[in-house]
Amino acid sequence: MSFHMVEAVGVEKQIGHQMILKGIDFTVDRGEVVSLIGPSGSGKSTFLRCINHLTKITGGYLAVDGEPVGYRRSDNKLYELSDAEVALTRAEIGMVFQRFNLFGHKTAIENVIEGPVQVKRQPVERARARAAALLERVGLSSKADAYPSQLSGGQQQRVAIARALAMDPKLMLFDEPTSALDPELVGEVLAVMKDLAADGMTMVVVTHEMAFAREVCDRVAFMDDGRVVECGPPNEVFNNPTSERARSFFARVL
């Protein structure tokens, strides 16, 4: 069975009377790195949060690895999952936030082992060994016992990536991972993400880093006003945008 890693068909999200997502059609294949770009307010982050059910969709169909997100399909009906069941599916999807959201009362290594120990019930020793290796991979072995408040933004974000990787996710979601960083700290986070992409991780990245999108991503999806307007290889989308909205957006940011 080969499913798309992410499959969205006509995904809608309505909050109050406002339609945030107006029918998103979008797929991500296994091992693909896709970035979502577009003006702020276009629904990029909302859509990303729908993929791991932090936000509930109000219409359409959204599946990860063939399983509808937040629901169980049986007899052509969708049964809503319990909080605990949704939590289990989220455990397989890593997420990195704009504002890092490291647990402030825990050290770097405690942040990384929290998921494996609490959710996957791994023995602490094994989780610690794995966490140490992950911190080394993101270049922060020396900061294992530092609290988030003692780390720079770039370091915090790299710990956050290690925390997500510790759950052995099959898919990683990045929600503007470098937007809250000082310019000189952006590079270290992007380097970790590049390394991850080269390793074959499936990634969906909401970003304003056009250079990163062009260099690392297999495809780029341009979103505007709750829809995916263009989607394709970066060079195609950046160099020959077919829609007027994409053209005027790229004229401003490139």
């Binding site: 932090l54 989220r90 490291l102 647990f103 929290e114 998921g115 959710v119 997500a164």
Partner: peptide, 11 residues
């Protein structure tokens, strides 16, 4: 964001 991050790792 703290609760969101916790739920994102499967809590």
């Amino acid at each position: 964001g703290q609760e969101e991050a916790a739920r994102a790792i499967g809590m």
